[in-house]
Design a protein around this nucleic acid. Structure first.
Length: 651
DNA sequence: AAGCTCTGCTTTTTT
DNA sequence: AGCAGAGCTT
């Protein structure tokens, strides 16, 4: 690898803590990899280097590059997401953290627990925030390290008495969680951070494990994560890399003061900059620069392409998202026929939801693809059913798993299941065999559900076998429950295959609680060259020669859900900015303007009137910045109240 | 009283 | 596609 002077300065920086401000495409990952290699070469033990990223994707990418760069030493590095690292540490010393036997629960399970609690606090027939909304509030408050009560006081969302009961829900949720031995994603960070700062002995011990802590995507760190870095630094040195123009996780509590005020928050630190873009041609950056220049905020970031000039971005309108999807897929096929690899193409979407048409078109044309951020394998109903059986055996206190598993069986509903769960809880500490036989005698009619439990328990240390048995035990009931069973059955076969990578089912559960891979990624194990379909959020940190920006239309950028909230809209601008700057050679923005309909809209009505002229970033693209299929049809002499009409509908 | 079925509503982004 | 709630069946 060759580096420019700025990159080299960062890589070889030998002072105290440092923040590297790095614009899109300036070689951020390369610098982290380069510095790691440099540190190892200068004698730092790889095991004393901690690499933290924000997303699993970034973590995977980084470890892959490190393997190429530093060889087998890369296996000794401690690398992963914040959540991964914290959980790993807690698991290795459970007594210090008080997290023995805990089950990690994902977002869905959180909502499930909250739903139970919510029902106790909601008055009959009353309009009350949904469980998912309450979970969001609770999660945001924890990640920004403020009490939920204070958060609701500062940003009141509901009537006073509703707010109050929402707070009861949140504390009830916490109690329920403790009773079931659950820890959620936020707990992973929270428990780690709180012990780290409360227990001096532990802090000294943990901080003593590392000499260097390298953090990617610093602009996405939240206060909790900053506290973790605070507790671990000194003597360990921080090397944080970030770009405030790419901050797109405020909804998760990310606080870009961690970048803006870095030098104040971390005494003795300095700031370095990477300013030269090596990824894209200038025309692509011109469009991205223009987008930021339209913002009321001063990003002070003008990207300059070292690669010089190339193609202008395309902006193409379609009649429907079906046409849009078909065109993209045909375009990829054509390029592929001319010799381009499929993997050079990335289709970027604002939401996972908006990729349906494209996915269908890819499947129809039999183009292999992987869908990053897509419907996660472990979120599919039938998969959760089977996994619930495994979870029941893993932790008898796992009430969500029991509720799910028991109600799969005909004749057992919420009520019976709840009674059984109470019975199981009373037998806390008993041998599983005792619980199983009690269940068998209590459930005369569906006592064969115990067969599955026993089969899994007796093959606990042979994951593929246990999973196989779990699946065959449930197959009959699930087949009647779900339409299209053949397709779903394939997912279960996938589960068995995934199990073979683990020595125990416990390891299996924990791995996929944190990293619920998509089925299309699993399929990719057999399919190397494929198109990438990805959300803009997951796409950060990646690049591709040809990028299609799916549905670059009103209602997506900014997303209609954020309209009216200035900060949220501004974050949407950065999302679009991130998406655009992924492209190396060609950027193709597509949209379908005619059928914009949001039936559930927030008082916006449906049909084209839903979007008056404002609130769409690409409305006033200066002529010449993109090649539009009807140049100048947008933003020319049309008043603010005008709607956009596809050129196809014009006279 | 518990379980089941049908209908209408909903869908940002991630660990 | 899945969930909440209403209404129907066992």
């Amino acid at each position: 690898m060759e580096f420019n002077d700025q990159q080299l300065a960062a890589i070889e920086h030998d002072g105290s803590h440092v923040l590297v401000l790095a614009g899109a495409g300036t070689g951020k990952t390369m610098v982290i990899v380069g510095r790691t290699a440099h540190l190892i070469r200068s004698g730092v033990e790889p095991g004393r280097i901690l690499l933290l990223t924000f997303t699993r994707r970034a973590a995977r990418e980084m470890t892959a590059r490190l393997r190429l760069e530093v060889g087998p030493a890369s296996d000794l590095l401690i690398a992963g997401t914040f959540h991964h690292f914290c959980l790993r540490t807690m698991r290795s010393m459970p007594k210090s953290f008080g997290t023995q036997d805990s089950t990690v629960i994902d977002r869905d399970d959180q909502i499930q627990v909250m739903r139970l609690v919510r029902s106790l606090h909601r008055k009959k027939g009353e309009k009350f925030p949904r469980a998912s909304e309450i979970v969001r509030v609770a999660s945001y408050a924890r990640n920004t390290n403020i009490p939920a009560s204070e958060y609701l006081e500062r940003f009141p969302r509901w009537e006073d008495d509703v707010n109050e009961r929402v707070l009861h829900c949140i504390s009830g949720y916490g109690e329920r969680k403790t009773a079931s031995n659950y820890i959620d994603f936020d707990d992973i960070l929270f428990i780690f951070a709180s012990r780290l700062h409360r227990d001096e002995g532990l802090r000294t011990k943990l901080a003593g494990l590392y000499d260097h802590i390298l953090v990617d995507e610093m602009q996405d760190t939240n206060p909790l994560q900053m506290l973790i870095l605070d507790g671990l630094r000194d003597p360990a040195r921080l090397f944080c890399v970030g770009d405030d123009a790419q901050s797109i996780y405020a909804f998760r509590g990310a606080d870009f003061r961690n970048v803006h005020s870095f030098t104040e928050m971390v005494p003795g630190s300095s700031v370095l900059k990477l300013e030269r873009n090596y990824r894209s041609h200038q025309e692509i950056l011109d469009l991205a620069n223009w987008l930021l220049s339209e913002s009321p905020l001063e990003y002070g970031r003008i990207l300059e392409a070292r690669r010089g000039k190339g193609f202008k971005p395309f902006l193409i309108d379609f009649d429907s998202d079906f046409d849009e999807a078909r065109w993209i897929v045909e375009d990829i096929v054509e390029r592929n026929d001319r010799g381009a690899r499929l993997s050079e193409h990335m289709i970027i979407a604002r939401t996972a939801f908006s990729t349906r048409a494209t996915e269908a078109a890819l499947i129809e044309k039999k183009i292999p693809y992987r869908y990053v951020g897509g419907t996660q394998l472990f979120h599919a109903a039938h998969v959760k059913d089977v996994v619930s059986l495994i979870r029941c055996v893993a932790s008898m206190m796992d009430e969500i798993a029991w509720m799910r598993y028991l109600t799969i069986w005909p004749g057992i509903g919420d009520r019976t299941a709840a009674l059984m769960i109470d019975g199981i809880r009373e037998k806390r500490g008993e041998n599983p065999a005792v619980i199983f036989s009690w269940l068998r005698s209590s459930l005369k009619r569906s006592s064969n559900l115990v067969d599955g439990l026993e089969a899994v328990a007796s093959h606990w240390n042979d994951p593929p076998e246990a999973m196989q048995r779990a699946c065959s035990c449930l197959e009959e009931v699930l087949e009647t429950r779900y339409a299209g069973w053949e397709g779903r059955k394939r997912d279960l076969e996938l589960l068995v295959r995934l199990c073979s990578r683990h020595r125990t089912l416990g390891g299996f559960l924990e791995t996929y609680a944190l990293d619920p891979m998509t089925s299309s990624i699993v399929e990719r194990l057999e399919n190397d060259d494929c198109v990438t379909l990805i959300t803009a959020h997951s796409a950060k940190g990646t690049e591709a020669r040809v990028c299609y920006l799916l549905k670059a239309e009103p209602g997506q950028y900014p997303h209609f859900r954020s309209l009216g909230d200035e900060d949220a809209e501004e974050e949407e601008r950065r999302v679009l900015y991130v998406a655009m700057t992924r492209a190396m050679d060609e950027l193709i923005l597509t949209r379908s303007l005619r059928r914009i309909r949001f039936p559930w809209s927030l008082g916006l009505g449906d049909g084209p009137q839903a979007f008056p002229g404002s609130g769409y970033f690409l409305r006033d693209i200066p002529p010449g910045l993109v090649k539009h299929d009807l140049d100048g049809s947008l933003g020319s002499g049309e008043g603010d109240d005008q709607i956009i009409i596809s050129w196809r509908d014009r006279e």
